[in-house]
């Protein structure tokens, strides 16, 4: 009796574990099935090389590049903000700050990541854009600059905490050897610690960019809904994620070609983040082994 109960419980728990596999399988099956139906009507070549994206207009073009360029541009701006700031925070907390300061500041930084993204979107649209418009006359009301900056603020804690772990993992002996040679903290950080922790720092960067690429509400609110193939940060653009939200909000007929575009766009988004996440997982395993 007791043994059957044990077996049943184990099976139930295993079933929950299996659920996670089914989730991944579900995502893959749906994206592949629905986008393959999309690619019956639109050639993959046109999709991957076209620079016009107008599925919701009467003259339809299905080139993904305008959405891709916007996605890359906003993520790049976010990274340009978050990498220097996040990395200096990691260095400061690890090498300069005293323990109490670190203990108070770390949870406070996590607050930056816990603010809902629609709130960040509101900040970008109603505070940052008007503020920047005072200095940059050509800045449109919707643009990729201010959501990019705000997204950068959001991913600061991601870069700082992961880089801090990487810096922390550098063996004491390397640090001591550097100080023993008479190097300052600054020299030790930039010539010894950062090079040794580089793979960990790269992991933090890849994960942060992957997060930025998948971020939706900030760009949907503040970057606009105009698919522009441009790398000009001052004009309205539309990212992949914004497009998916735009179609979901509109009344596009079900089972139409327009409707299936979100699955094709979703497929591209999924592949981008999937590749980045796996590169970072692989690097992480590699550098963990390095110091063991």
């Amino acid at each position: 009796m007791r043994r059957t109960k044990e077996k049943v419980i184990e099976k139930l728990l295993a079933a929950s574990g299996l659920m996670t596999i089914l989730t991944t399988a579900g995502i893959l099956v749906i994206l592949i099935y629905e986008s393959s139906r999309f690619f019956i009507d639109v050639s993959i070549w046109e999709f991957l090389t076209g620079t016009e994206w107008t599925p919701l207009f009467s003259k339809k073009e299905f080139g993904i590049w305008p959405l891709l360029s916007a996605t890359f541009l906003t993520s790049l701006i976010a990274l340009l903000v978050a990498l220097p700031v996040g990395l200096s925070i990691a260095i400061y907390l690890n090498e300069y700050a005293n323990r109490n300061f670190r203990k108070t500041v770390k949870p406070m930084l996590e607050v930056l990541a816990s603010v809902p993204t629609v709130v960040y979107g509101f900040f970008a649209l109603t505070i940052v854009t008007p503020f920047l418009q005072q200095f940059i006359p050509g800045l449109a009301g919707f643009n990729s600059l201010s959501p990019g900056i705000v997204m950068g603020i959001m991913i600061i804690p991601m870069i700082s905490s992961l880089s801090e772990d990487a810096l922390f993992a550098v063996p004491r002996t390397l640090r001591d050897a550097s100080y023993g040679m008479g190097a300052t903290r600054f020299q030790t950080v930039f010539r010894v610690l950062i090079p040794s922790a580089s793979s960990g720092i790269i992991v933090s960067v890849i994960l942060a960019v992957s997060r930025a690429i998948g971020e939706t509400m900030i760009v949907a609110i503040a970057a606009g809904q105009q698919p522009n193939f441009t790398f000009n940060p001052l004009v309205p653009v539309e990212t992949i994620t914004t497009y998916i939200v735009q179609v979901s909000l509109g009344d596009v007929p079900r089972d139409s070609l327009e409707y299936r575009t979100i699955f094709a766009a979703g497929m591209v988004l999924f592949l981008l983040t999937f590749v980045m996440n796996n590169i970072s997982l692989w690097l992480k395993r590699k550098y963990h082994r390095q110091y063991e």
């Binding site: 995502i27 749906i30 994206l31 629905e34 998948g214 939706t216």
Partner: peptide, 25 residues
């Protein structure tokens, strides 16, 4: 091992993709 890799991957999937899964499923 598969389950572990799978879960690490799921954590990184953008939330809007879960939306697409939910929409279809």
């Amino acid at each position: 091992r598969m389950l572990e890799i799978n879960i690490s991957n799921l954590v990184g999937v953008p939330s809007v993709i879960y939306g697409i899964l939910g929409l279809a499923l």
